[in-house]
């Protein structure tokens, strides 16, 4: 399974159930919803779609679609906030 992890040079702040991610290298601002912020925190360590799926279920008691997690990770990769863990 492909693992993803946060890139360095990012800072984050939580404001009213939203997460604001500042990329200090590319000078971008990215806003995530509450569940996105939860996944973002988990991504401080290497995660797979499956591990995030289980973490969400454990924390929220919600069965989140794996496609949605996959799409979320693809977005973060596209915006240069996460990369494949080596």
């Amino acid at each position: 399974m492909v693992q993803f992890v946060q890139k360095k040079n990012v800072a984050q702040i939580e404001v009213e159930n939203e997460w604001i991610i500042l990329d200090t290298e590319q000078y971008t601002v990215t806003r995530l919803n509450d569940l996105g912020g939860f996944c973002w925190q988990k991504l401080r360590e290497a995660q797979t779609v499956d591990s995030l799926y289980k973490a969400i279920d454990l924390e929220y008691g919600v069965e989140c679609e794996k496609d949605a997690i996959d799409h979320f990770l693809a977005d973060l990769t596209k915006y240069g906030l996460i990369s494949h863990a080596v």
Binding site: Q26, V29, R31, N33, D34, G36, Y60, V62, L76, Y79
Partner: peptide, 15 residues
Amino acid sequence: KKEKASLVLSHQPIK
């Protein structure tokens, strides 16, 4: 467990 709350809401460069 937390309440059921719910995505990348927006992404933009800093000007």
